[in-house]
Amino acid sequence: MNNQFIPLRINREKQRAMFKQYLVAWTPTIMLLDMDGKVHHRFNGFLTPPEMGARILLDAAKIELFLQRNDRARRQLDNIFTDYQGTFAIPEAIFYSGVVDMELQEDPKFLRQLLERLRKEFPLSEWTMKAKPYELIDL
């Protein structure tokens, strides 16, 4: 964790103002922030260590994509596929993997490819539904 991120803990007993400022009603709440301290993603509830690891890497990859640090986004997604197969994050990771590849290589065929992979591996996932318009792209 410390290799890739700066971890920060906000204690409900000691830092109630932070809970109010960030509109946190229930714990645990995890947020992913950029290096300027701006919140990009948040999630609630208890996750198993693999689910937590995959979720954090996926949200980090989406921040890197936003920051146009696409090589870093690619590496975060690769780490999910290597270390966290079988987690709930995989369909969304496939979706963003295609998006990052399209950005890196400026080729829309990666969007069509991500749709085909999702249809094959996760036909019932919401991410397969979200990728449906990419069927209009020629392979």
Binding site: F5, L8, R12
Partner: peptide, 30 residues
Amino acid sequence: MIIWQESFDTTVQKAKADGKLIVMDFFNPH
């Protein structure tokens, strides 16, 4: 072992210096 920061401002300073993202965990000690 995870080394947690407790100060938001210090965390942002470190994140800027290292080019790293921040994981912020709101927790209840009870």
